[in-house]
Every structure is written in structure tokens, then in C-alpha cells.
Design a protein around this nucleic acid. Structure first.
Lengths: 334, 334
DNA sequence: CTGTTAGCGCTTTCAG
DNA sequence: CTGAAAGCGCTAACAG
């Protein structure tokens, strides 16, 4: 009841191991193996439930068909959705993923890089944080394939897949403006992350060009408790007589909607709402809301594809950058 | 600049590969290799930055030193905390973890088992769900080491690490009773999960023996939105004149506390509160609250240890069960 | 068209 | 006390 090896298949089929190998790797044509033999080999392999020993393959070929995925915090819904999608995409192309989550701990992040190194991953998909720069450069200089995702490190010429946060907010603002709202507030966290800055600047640009009113910004400490966020949003909306609110973050949107709800305001008639949808909570939003959805599927597809191209040498590790746009979704009335 | 192999070290040290292998695997004594040679080999290995090729080791020894961890939903804070802790524990013992999250999708779960099978993991740590039974039995019958965590499947004699949910609620109730509360309500989800049932029955037992009042239960749909949960809790607490509430879940606790807070009630003077702390949010709770904390660290330690013992054949794959108790934590005043 | 051979890097007897 | 040799399962040249 042991797993059959290539030898077992070979002897059962009356051919040599190398023939079996060629057939099973789709090199029958190239090796000019007769169709009848190929068919017999395939049949027997199937019957015996043959599966190549991936370890042996790795040792021989020097590639593991494993991708290391390093994100900041796997508990963050955005990253966990991304991770899941990436895993699926990779599987389709015959690659496995091993995850690692740095938990915002630099030392841990660097350890992971090290551990993954000895796990012989073929390449990395990484959400880089500033402190990893040195180790990352080292890996890159060793010629290890990698792609950055969602963030990047300017000093490193690594292909990356980014989200056009500016465009996302622009789309949302255009929508609100077209619908006739003209006093639009913007609620964001005061994070220093480059994504948040990009979103903010889109808002400011839009407000400056298309609206007579001055921009109205509310920046909130991300870790503040819900009650405080709600109070702040309430005051913000009422004091400024807003007729629409743009929430720069999923979380803020969810919390903000609660207070709008408690005030009994109808969306989109009494107030317009747009949320940036970092996760996939859109379906839970009440009707009338518009969301800028992150292109999770596309990010996953492209990251995986770009990495595998690199691994297979199809693409020089050039500075190719991909800027993916979100999609505006209007939640219809229930 | 290539990674040095055992041969490189051997020739640099003027010995044979096998000697290097013995020394580096701590078998110098057993092989009666002279201390001077051993020292020289170690020194050179260090200088050259030698690291054994894990793939080659796996191929040769038949073990990968990799553990497959399968949880239901990695985005669930309880599981992600657990996963992180398990990873650390495993690393200490020289094992790596590869995660998989079934996302409550049975087919996906079974696929994962398959994929992990060909990844040559040495064993599994699993949070089993009913539908996996067949595949799991198959693996077990093949002699693959595994341990169940947090849940178990009664028909399979697999070692498992469980949490004593009954005891947790009992501890919490004892605390409340000792403090003199005598109208204690219980807020839970109406989930059919065995853990939730166990918690509930502890509450009922306690109430029946130590309290003259009938049990007061509020069961809530887990996916209901926050506003509704809050309204329900508010009504529940006021209508029944409760002087204490036991929240059977972290999430319910957090939401419930919001309304308590909005009502302006002081804890623990005006109302007593105990939460079951599935995640590690305890530190965020306001002062005066008591929580039953899940023993994440212990679960991780024991799961890993039990699995590795199995892998190393130290323990027959017997029906050893471990029932771990939570710990009562009182959050002091800020 | 197919088989033989040589290793990938390591561990483990078994002879010295 | 140490080294030589075999072989884990597979693939890729090179011979037939």
C-alpha cells in the first residue's frame, strides 16, 4: 500500500523510468514517444494512483513550486481575502503558497525571510514594510524572484502590483458630484501610510476643482473606540451641514453608517455615502450606498502571474509596475 | 557565492562528508569523532555559512519537518492568534508550519488535505469539521500523525486538545455569585457548535443550584447587525432588572459593552460583567470587567508537542485527550 | 522511438 | 576514530 514510485509504474508498463517521466511531464512529443506507449503509461499511472514525489522533483530540478507570501497581518480582512485569492490563483498554475505574517514585527519579518529561504521557496510575494529594505535588497541581489504588492520600496527596483487609491477616491467623488451633492465631507484615519495619503489628496483635488466649499476633513485615531468615532462623525456631519460623506476606510464606513442609521437619515436621499471597500464587506452594506471596491481578484492574479513569469525567466526582473483600479459599486435597494 | 554543500565543508576541513554530517547532527559522540576534528568542522561550517539543504534531507530521511495546520477560518481572531502561537512553538522545536484555512468550505478543506499530502507534511494539526470525517479517517488509517484542536470528531480516535468551556463559564459565574450579584443574564449566539452548548449548560447548572431566579437567556443571531444586538441587549437587561451579564462570546461582549456604556452604567458597581474572551481583546476592555481568557498559549504548546511526539513515535496514536482550562482575569481600574 | 547513466545533497550502514 | 559507498525518487543528457 506504499505510494508507487516512477519505477513501479515503469516496470508495470514495461518501459523505463525516463519514458514514464517524459510522458507524465507532457514531453512525449518532444521525446517522440509513440502514442500507444504514452497512453499505456498514462493509464497505469492513473490506476496506480501515481503522484510524483515533490521532494525528489525539487531536489533534482532545483525548484520547489512554492511561493512565499509575506503580508503584514493575516488577521486583517483585506490581506486574508487577498491571501486566499492568491492561493487559488497559484494553485491553478501549479504552485503552492506558504504564508507568513510579520505582525508588524520587523524582527519577525526578517526571521521569516530567513526561514523561507531555507524552505527553498521559488519566489516571494511581499507587502513590504520600510524596515525590511536591507534583507530584501540582499535577496534581490541574490537573484531571488519577488514582487511587491499593495506597497513598495522606492529604492528597490522590484516589480509591483499597486492599487490606484487616487483613482478610487476620484471615482467616488465624481459619482457624488454627479448626483448633485455639494457639501461632501471626508472621514479618514490619520495614518501616515502612503495609500491613505493618496486617497486624501484625490479628495482635496476634487473638492478644489469641482466644489465651491472648502474641504471638510475629519481625521480619526484608528484605535479609538467605536463610541468615540461615532460621536466624532455625528458632530462632523451635523456641524458642517454635510449632504454627503466619503469614508476612506471600510472600518470607518461601517462605524459611520451606524450613527447615520441611528440618526434615522435616509441614504441616498438625505445623505450620500461612499465607502472605500478594503475588504469584501460591500454585500453587508445597506442599500443606497456606493462603494469603491478593491480589485482583490486582479491583484492576486497579476501578482502571481508576474512572479511566476520571473521564476520561469520570461520576464527580466525589471521595474514593471501595475496600477490597478478599483471598481465603483452601487448597492441597489433591497 | 553559491550556497556551500556538505562536500564543500568536508573538503575545506579535510574530512569526508559523512564526518561533517555526523558532527553537525550532534552525533559526534556516538560516532566517536575526535573533539579536535569536530571543533574544526563546526568552525568551518559556521564561517562558510553552511545550511543543510532541507530538500535533500527530506528526500533522504523521509521527513520534512513541516506541520500542516488546518483551521476553519484564519481571519477569525481566535484562530489567527492560535496560528501565530503554534508557529512560534513549532519553530522552537525545529518545525515549520504551513497553514490552510478551509473557509468553511468542505470541498476546499478536502482539497487542502490532498495538497498537503503531496507536500509531504509530517503531520497535521486540525480543527475538524464534520464533513472532513471520511478523508480524515483515510489519513489516520494511513498512519499519518495528527491532533485535533478545539473540536473533535467522536468517531475518530485522534489525540486532541480541547478547551474546557464548561469550566470557563463556571469560573465566571462563581466570581459573579461571590460578588453578590443575583440576577445574572446570559447572552449567547444560537449557534449549534458544541462549545457554545457547553458554555450554556454551565450557566444553566450554576443558575439552578446557586440562584433562586430562573435563568435568563438571550440568544442572538451571530450575523445580526450591531445596532440590533445592542437594542436586544438593552431590552434584555432592563426588562429583567439584571444586575449582571455574562457574555458568552468576545464579540457579544464588545457590542454589549457599548450599550452598557451608552446607558452610563458603572461597572462593576451598577452592573457586573463577565466576557468569554475568545481572542486577545481583553486588554482593550474597560476596567472593572472580568474575562475568561482562552489558554491560547497552552493550546498551542500542547498541540505541537503532542503532534511531534507522535511524529517521533514517542506516543502511540492513542486516544489521549487534553482538556485545558481558561483563566479568569479581572481588569483592574485604569 | 526508448533505455542507460549520472547525479541533485544528504544520511547511514559498513568497512577499514 | 574516520571514509567509502549506496541510495532516497526523480530528470536530463546521451546513447543506442
Amino acid at each position: 500500500m506504499k505510494k508507487p514510485s516512477i519505477k513501479d509504474i515503469a516496470s508495470k508498463a514495461g518501459v523505463s523510468p525516463s519514458t514514464v517521466s517524459s510522458v507524465l511531464n507532457g514531453k512525449a512529443k518532444h521525446m517522440r514517444i509513440s502514442d500507444v506507449v504514452a497512453a499505456r503509461v498514462k493509464k497505469i499511472a492513473l490506476e496506480e494512483g501515481y503522484q510524483p514525489n515533490t521532494i525528489a522533483v525539487s531536489l533534482r530540478t532545483g525548484r520547489s513550486k512554492i511561493i512565499g507570501l509575506i503580508v503584514e497581518d493575516i488577521a486583517n480582512p483585506f490581506f486574508s481575502a487577498l491571501a486566499r485569492t492568491i492561493e487559488d490563483e497559484a494553485l491553478k498554475l501549479g504552485y503552492r503558497i506558504v504564508y507568513c505574517s510579520t505582525e508588524n514585527d520587523l524582527e519577525r519579518g526578517n526571521d521569516l525571510l530567513y526561514v523561507l529561504g531555507q524552505t527553498h521557496v521559488d519566489g516571494y510575494i511581499i507587502t513590504p514594510v520600510p524596515g525590511m529594505e536591507l534583507k530584501l535588497k540582499e535577496l534581490k541581489d541574490q537573484g531571488r524572484p519577488m514582487v511587491f504588492m499593495d506597497r513598495f520600496i522606492a529604492s528597490l527596483e522590484v516589480p509591483c502590483v499597486l492599487i490606484n487609491n487616487y483613482d478610487g477616491v476620484k471615482q467616488g467623488m465624481d459619482y457624488l458630484l454627479k448626483r448633485g451633492y455639494n457639501c461632501i465631507g471626508y472621514v479618514s484615519t490619520n495614518s501616515s501610510q502612503v495609500q491613505m495619503k493618496a486617497r486624501m489628496s484625490a479628495y482635496i483635488d476634487k473638492v478644489n476643482t469641482d466644489l465651491q466649499k472648502a474641504p471638510l476633513l475629519l481625521e480619526i485615531d484608528f484605535l479609538m473606540d467605536r463610541t468615540k468615532i461615532k460621536a466624532a462623525v455625528k458632530e462632523f456631519v451635523i456641524d458642517n451641514n454635510l449632504d454627503a460623506v466619503f469614508f476612506a476606510t471600510n472600518y470607518l464606513g461601517v462605524v459611520g453608517l451606524e450613527i447615520i442609521n441611528e440618526l434615522g437619515w435616509k441614504i441616498p436621499d438625505q445623505i450620500g455615502i461612499v465607502c472605500f471597500d478594503d475588504t469584501d464587506l460591500f454585500k453587508l452594506y445597506p442599500p443606497g450606498i456606493t462603494a469603491v471596491r478593491q480589485p482583490v481578484q486582479e491583484i492576486a492574479e497579476h501578482s502571481v502571474k508576474m512572479l511566476i513569469d520571473q521564476i520561469q525567466g520570461k520576464l527580466a526582473s525589471s521595474e514593471s509596475q501595475l496600477l490597478l483600479k478599483g471598481e465603483l459599486m452601487v448597492r441597489g435597494s433591497a
